[in-house]
Amino acid sequence: MKSLRSYRKYRRLLAVQVRASVLLALQYRLDAAFDAAVELFYAATALVPLLVVFGTRGTVAGWSYPESLLVVGWFTLLQTVLDGIIVPGLTAVVEHVRKGTLDFVLLKPADAEFLVSTARFQPTRFTNVITAGLIFAYAFHQLGRGPSPGGMVIALVLLAFATVVLHSLLIMAIAASFYVVRIDNLAYLFTSVFDAARWPRSVFRGLAHVLFTFVLPFAMMTSYPAEALLGQLPPGRLLFALLGAGAFALAARIVWNRALGRYTSASS
């Protein structure tokens, strides 16, 4: 009973926070339209290396052009999750810690990790969902077939896992701001390293392969769902992804709580 009540409370809280973000974005409509256009420009420039590479040959590291496009599609989708949902709220934490205004968040009668994670959304970034949809449509048109229904379900489950892992990684990165002052560019670092997820996992070998499979599990985020849509993902991988997502969420929770213990309200 209690857990149901707290679930309802957090659902309502989330709705309020989302509404505030949407209103904030719509306040400057011209800016919002400009932002959306810029997103399209980014997506277009990001395709250039792919086009150049596949201009010279049919397959790269075992992936054909339309298959690689599926990976790019998932990457674009996850960029929405990252830039539209996860990063905006969490970057504010660094500023809060520096100024000491995190007090006001901690005083509220709700979980602090939840509050900072949902504090801010960027609705304009959601144009990327349309871009991703177009990329998927084009890729399957090129392949001459549709995704397998079972694969679509698995891919959506993997999307949820990927969101959990991205959120956990960012929480752990942000926790560093409790220890080191002026480290406001960590989110920027993460988004730039995340660019590696644009490429199929078999591109990376040796150390990079280990790094992008276990430490920063980009393989699970973009290559696995693409393989699932193609109906080529071994079922065991889903279990691996589930365990991975759970481990990351737990680690992030522990790191966040320990970091909070280090917080000394800077203003007082």
Binding site: V53, Y188, W199
Partner: peptide, 29 residues
């Protein structure tokens, strides 16, 4: 610390290196 983060944020050429060497493994471009 901030400086180190800026340096790490410029590792994109290394990712591109991994990609293009994978491409060139079969035949040079």
């Amino acid at each position: 610390a901030e400086m180190l983060v800026w340096i790490l944020a410029t590792t994109m050429p290394l990712v591109m290196m991994a990609l293009f060497t994978a491409v060139a493994r079969d035949a040079p471009i």
